[in-house]
Amino acid sequence: MKNIFASIPDAFEEELFDDLLKSGNIRIERILSKGQSSPAQGWYDQSEHEWVVVLEGSGIIAFEDGREITLGRGDCINIPAHVRHRVKWTDPDRVTIWLAVFYD
Rank of each mutant, 00 (worst) to 15 (best):
D75P: 06
E29M: 14
A62P: 03
G57M: 04
W98P: 03
I8P: 03
H85Q: 06
G72P: 07
I28L: 14
E64R: 15
R30S: 01
A40N: 04
R27E: 07
R73L: 13
D93W: 07
S23C: 10
T70M: 12
T70K: 14
E56F: 06
E64L: 12
P92R: 00
R73H: 12
G57F: 05
D18M: 06
E56W: 08
L21K: 10
I4A: 08
E29T: 14
E68D: 04
I79H: 07
E14D: 10
G59C: 11
E14K: 14
K88R: 10
I69L: 15
F17W: 01
P80W: 08
A11E: 15
E50V: 07
L20S: 03
K2E: 11
N3V: 09
A100I: 08
E15K: 01
W51A: 13
L99H: 12
D65V: 02
V101S: 11
D91L: 02
S37N: 04
F63W: 10
V52E: 09
L71V: 09
V53E: 15
T96A: 09
S7R: 12
R67Q: 14
A40R: 05
S47V: 09
G74C: 09
S23I: 12
I8Y: 03
W51D: 07
R30V: 00
G59F: 08
D91S: 11
C76M: 12
I8S: 01
E68T: 05
F12S: 00
G66W: 00
L99C: 11
G66L: 01
D18W: 05
H49M: 10
W43C: 03
K88D: 09
K34T: 02
E13H: 06
D75W: 11
E68W: 03
D45Y: 05
W89G: 03
R84N: 13
A81Y: 09
W89V: 04
